Simulated scan of single mutants.
Amino acid sequence: MESFFLYSAVILTAIIAVPAYRVIKGPTVFDRLVGTNAIATKTIVLICLIGYVFDRIGMFVDITLAYAVLGFVGSLTIAKYFSSENTNFRYDD
């Protein structure tokens, strides 16, 4: 069963490349933000899998919760910054 989680972790690491492409080539800042959130979500699962493989799941769950909270607060901060910046534009009719 441990090898299954190890192979799952390797496959999940390869899957992280898909949103990484979106972060690098995204046409807008919001596309890059969504790609970063997708990478963070997959990283949380990856850290839990690694915790199971090392038989220290309790410690790794604490690390993942802290990572999830920091990612969420960071995403909200960046989204708020860029959305408030875009509302200052005037459209002349």
Results as ranks from 00 to 15, higher is better:
1 M>N: 06
2 E>T: 04
2 E>H: 01
3 S>H: 09
4 F>A: 06
4 F>L: 12
5 F>W: 12
6 L>C: 05
6 L>S: 05
7 Y>F: 10
7 Y>P: 00
8 S>P: 00
8 S>Q: 02
9 A>F: 05
9 A>Y: 05
10 V>S: 01
12 L>P: 00
13 T>H: 00
15 I>K: 00
15 I>V: 13
17 A>S: 09
18 V>Y: 08
18 V>N: 00
20 A>T: 02
20 A>M: 08
21 Y>H: 01
22 R>V: 03
22 R>I: 06
22 R>P: 01
23 V>R: 00
24 I>V: 06
25 K>L: 08
26 G>Q: 02
26 G>C: 01
26 G>L: 02
27 P>K: 11
27 P>V: 08
31 D>L: 05
32 R>F: 05
33 L>C: 07
33 L>A: 10
34 V>A: 14
35 G>I: 07
35 G>W: 07
37 N>C: 13
38 A>E: 03
39 I>Y: 08
41 T>M: 15
42 K>Y: 06
42 K>L: 10
43 T>P: 11
44 I>Q: 04
47 I>N: 07
47 I>A: 05
48 C>G: 10
50 I>T: 07
50 I>P: 04
52 Y>A: 11
52 Y>H: 03
56 R>M: 15
57 I>W: 11
59 M>K: 14
59 M>D: 15
59 M>C: 10
59 M>V: 14
60 F>L: 12
61 V>C: 14
63 I>K: 09
63 I>Y: 13
63 I>Q: 10
63 I>M: 13
64 T>M: 12
67 Y>H: 13
68 A>H: 07
68 A>E: 11
70 L>H: 07
71 G>P: 01
71 G>C: 08
73 V>E: 03
73 V>K: 01
74 G>L: 04
74 G>I: 02
75 S>M: 04
75 S>F: 07
76 L>M: 14
77 T>Q: 11
79 A>N: 09
81 Y>K: 09
82 F>W: 12
82 F>D: 02
82 F>N: 09
83 S>R: 12
84 S>V: 08
86 N>H: 13
87 T>N: 14
87 T>R: 15
88 N>E: 14
88 N>G: 13
89 F>I: 11
89 F>G: 08
90 R>S: 13
90 R>N: 13
91 Y>P: 01
92 D>C: 06
92 D>H: 14
93 D>E: 13
